[in-house]
């Protein structure tokens, strides 16, 4: 983020020179710290990527670990891609990729427009007090951990003791398997995600709406535009850059996704649709100590994420929008 704002204030391209550095040295000094942080905690650890190609040994320095070995005709042969081949030969892993893509896509489709719509609606409210209250209530779920939300979900959607199903059965209806049937579970999962994040996600859009010149609205009113016309022709175009940047960043995470949410919400009946890469990596990598294997999986995941990000950025620039850099 810090870099982003920097780009904005820089304005027209300027040649880097010592005077400039000297004049604004405080700013550069401040910038240096996050950069050092990134180098130490994000870039230096990257050398451990080689674990994906080696047989991980705890009692050996990284460089001395042997390259991954496979048994071939009774002898051990070096095959650095062993763990990648391993991963793709596992049906569990293929299923995890599919589920990750599926759940993230659904999240994107349902979860991405929600905060935009919410911000637009909030913006139209003229009663300030009410707006503040609604806003605060909408932010709240963001601060709940997924463990708590998962418990709430069981309480509300559970088959026997769930609030909704209790009401349904009270009126003589059939229980709806919100969390114990795979396809229903996906819906519940996505809904919970939207509920948790739409309020918080709307902040950035509200900020961006606040930056739109009010004269535009006044001019539109004079021209006789109604609310929807103003929304469509002024507000939405006004926040378009923000939408595009966020969309690109979301696309970059299409192969990733958090761990907590699927892990807390899964149960044995929906495992087939709930197992995603992050939970798979946790189970196999951390719990069963297959570090090389999961590093390979993680590397694959990151590379795919990067490809998505670059493609989205490229397309957006082609369409005349600003990319993220």
């Amino acid at each position: 983020m810090a870099k982003d704002t920097k780009v904005k204030v820089k304005g027209p391209k300027q040649k880097f020179n010592a005077t400039y550095l000297k004049r604004y040295w405080q700013l550069y000094f401040l910038l240096a710290l996050p950069i050092i942080y990134l180098i130490i905690f994000k870039y230096i650890p990257m050398r451990y990527i080689v674990i994906a190609f080696k047989d991980y040994k705890l009692n050996m320095p990284l460089m001395k670990m042997p390259w991954a070995q496979v048994k071939k005709d009774g002898a051990m042969v070096t095959d650095a891609l062993k763990y990648f081949k391993d991963a793709f030969s596992k049906p569990d892993f293929r299923r995890a990729i599919f589920n990750t893509l599926k759940l993230n896509m659904l999240d994107l489709i349902c979860g991405f427009p929600a905060p935009i719509i919410f911000a637009l609606i909030l913006n139209e409210l003229c009663f300030k007090r009410f707006k503040k209250v609604v806003q605060t209530i909408a932010y709240m779920p963001h601060f709940l951990s997924w463990v708590i939300i998962a418990t709430l979900v069981i309480r509300v959607f559970g088959p026997t003791d769930g609030m909704i199903n209790m009401v349904i059965t009270k009126f003589g209806g059939e229980t709806i398997p919100f969390i114990d049937d795979p396809s229903h579970w996906v819906g519940t999962y996505v809904t919970a995600g939207v509920w948790q994040s739409f309020g918080w996600g709307s902040i950035i859009y509200l900020a961006s709406i606040a930056g739109i010149n009010t004269e535009l609205y006044e001019a539109a009113s004079v021209d006789g535009a109604g609310r929807f016309r103003k929304m469509w022709h002024i507000t939405l175009p006004g926040i378009r850059p923000t939408i595009v940047v966020l969309l690109i960043m979301n696309l970059g995470g299409i192969m990733g996704g958090g761990f907590e949410r699927p892990f807390a919400m899964k149960n044995n009946l929906v495992m087939d649709v709930a197992e995603v890469i992050s939970t798979f990596v946790y189970k196999v990598g951390i719990q069963q100590l297959k570090f090389s294997f999961t590093t390979a999986v993680g590397l694959f995941q990151s590379v795919v994420g990067l490809v998505f990000l670059l493609t989205a950025n490229f397309i957006s620039r082609r369409l005349g929008e600003r990319g993220i850099w």
């Binding site: 998962a150 069981i154 559970g158 088959p159 026997t160 003791d161 229980t175 969390i179 114990d180 807390a264 149960n267 044995n268 009946l269």
Partner: peptide, 14 residues
């Protein structure tokens, strides 16, 4: 049988 048996977390006290 209790309908919720499979969906509760391992350490749930429900």
């Amino acid at each position: 049988i209790w309908k919720d048996f499979a969906i509760q977390a391992t350490d749930s006290t429900a």
